[in-house]
Design a protein around this nucleic acid. Structure first.
Lengths: 205, 205
DNA sequence: CGTAGTATTGACTATCTTCAATGCCAGTGG
DNA sequence: CCACTGGCATTGAAGATAGTCAATACTACG
C-alpha cells in the first residue's frame, strides 16, 4: 500500500504474509489484505508443558497464539506461583514484557500450541500496529476479571464458561487445560475449593 | 516525518503537538519530537465526580490522563457496581471500548482531572501507534492484579501503596481519591473489611 | 439544624482455607 | 508383571477470615 513492506524486507527478516495462511481468520478475525504488512516471521509449536519463555528472560518477541493454549505463570517473591492469565487462539503473548525489556512471567503451553511471532518495532506496518492495538484493547478489557468479588462457586463457573468459549473447538467440558491447583491460583482460591465447586457444578448439570 | 500530519490536517481536525506542551513528559515519559505526530486534539478538565463518558456510550475517543485521577466504574447486570480500574497521569482511558465501539464502563473523575484526547485511527502516525501500544502493554501488565489471592489486609495495603505511588505528587497518604465502598468493590472485599484493614494499617504505621 | 452520604465499630454467621488422609493413574525400574 | 513413586484429584473435619446485619458517628452542604 505504501511500500512499507520494502523497508521491512530490507531489514533482512524473512516474513510470511498472514494473507497466505489458512488459519489467519482465527488470529486476525478478518483475513488481512496481502501486502498490508500483517505478517509473521517464525512459527513455533510447543508440546504440553513446554515454555515459550521463562520469567525474567529478556523480551524475546511478541507472539500470537495460532492454536492451543498458553498459561502465563508468575513466581512471586515469596516463592508462590500463580497463573496470571490464560491465552487462547488469536491472543497476544509477550506484550507485557515489551516495554520493560523482560518477560514478567513464564509462558507455558497447556496443550500442543502453535505460536506465530510478530516483529514489533517502530517501522512496522501501521495496519499491523492498529491490529495489535485492537488486540491489546480487547485483552485489557478482558483482564478486568469479571469474577472479582463473587463467590467461589460463581468464580469457578465463570472461569469454566470463559475458557470453554475461548477454546470451543476442543470439547473442554470434560478436561480443563490446567490442573485444579492452577485454576485455584488463577482465581485466588484454594485448590480444594475449586475441586468442591467443580463437583457442585457437575452435579447441577 | 513522512508527511503524515498533512493527511491528518486535511481531515480538518485541529491538533496540538505534545512537543509544545509543558506537561508532556508526564504523559509520554520522554518528550516527543515536534512533528512526529504525537499530538492531541482537545483537552477536557473534569471536576470531582464528573464523567468523561458513561457506561454503554458509543466510543467517543481515547484519552490520556494529564492530571488527576479517573475511576472506571462498571454497573453489572445484577445492578451492583464495581470499580474496574483507576487511571492516573500518563495512562489511557477509553481504549477498552475502541474495538467494540462502546465504552464498557463509565469514566469518572476522582478529583479535578485533565484529559487529553488522542485521535486513534488507521492513518495515525506510526510513532503515536507505537507509543500507545507501549502504554497498552504497561497497562496490560499492571492489570494482572498483584494482590490476587492474598489476604484482605495485604490487598488493601498493596492498593494503597500502588495508588500512592502513581499519584505521588499529591499526598494521598491521608485521603484516598475514592470512598471505602469503591475501594472495597475494586478489591473484591466488603466495605467494612476495607475500613478495618485501613485501621490496622494506620495503627501499625 | 437537618439531611444524605460516608466512615466506623461490634456481634454473629457463612464461606473459604487449612490440615490430613485417601484414591487414582501414568511412568519407572526391578 | 508388579511394586513403587510422584503428581493430581477428592473428601472430611476443624478453624480462621471475611461477609452480613445493625447501630452510631462524622462531615459537607443546603
Amino acid at each position: 500500500m505504501q511500500g512499507r513492506s520494502n523497508r521491512r524486507a530490507a531489514a533482512g527478516t524473512a516474513e510470511k504474509d498472514c494473507a497466505d495462511c489458512s488459519a489467519a481468520v482465527r488470529c486476525w478475525r478478518t483475513r488481512p489484505r496481502r501486502g498490508a504488512g500483517i505478517a509473521v516471521t517464525t512459527s513455533v509449536v510447543l508440546g504440553r508443558g513446554e515454555r515459550a519463555f521463562a520469567q525474567g528472560d529478556r523480551y524475546s518477541g511478541l507472539y500470537i497464539v495460532a492454536e492451543g493454549c498458553i498459561k502465563l505463570r508468575e513466581t512471586m517473591s515469596d516463592g508462590g506461583e500463580r497463573i496470571v492469565a490464560v491465552r487462547t487462539p488469536g491472543e497476544l503473548v509477550g506484550l507485557e514484557g515489551w516495554v520493560a525489556g523482560r518477560h514478567p512471567h513464564a509462558a507455558i503451553a497447556a496443550m500442543r500450541t502453535k505460536l506465530c511471532r510478530v516483529e514489533l518495532c517502530a517501522d512496522a506496518s501501521p495496519d499491523l500496529l492498529v491490529r495489535l492495538l485492537a488486540k491489546a484493547s480487547e485483552q485489557l478489557h478482558h483482564a478486568s476479571r469479571p469474577w472479582a468479588g463473587r463467590s467461589a462457586l460463581e468464580r469457578v463457573a465463570a472461569f469454566v464458561t470463559d475458557i470453554s468459549t475461548r477454546l470451543d473447538d476442543e470439547a473442554v467440558g470434560r478436561a480443563l487445560p490446567m490442573t485444579r491447583a492452577e485454576v485455584a491460583s488463577h482465581l485466588g482460591l484454594a485448590e480444594e475449593t475449586v475441586v468442591r465447586a467443580l463437583g457442585t457444578l457437575r452435579k447441577r448439570a
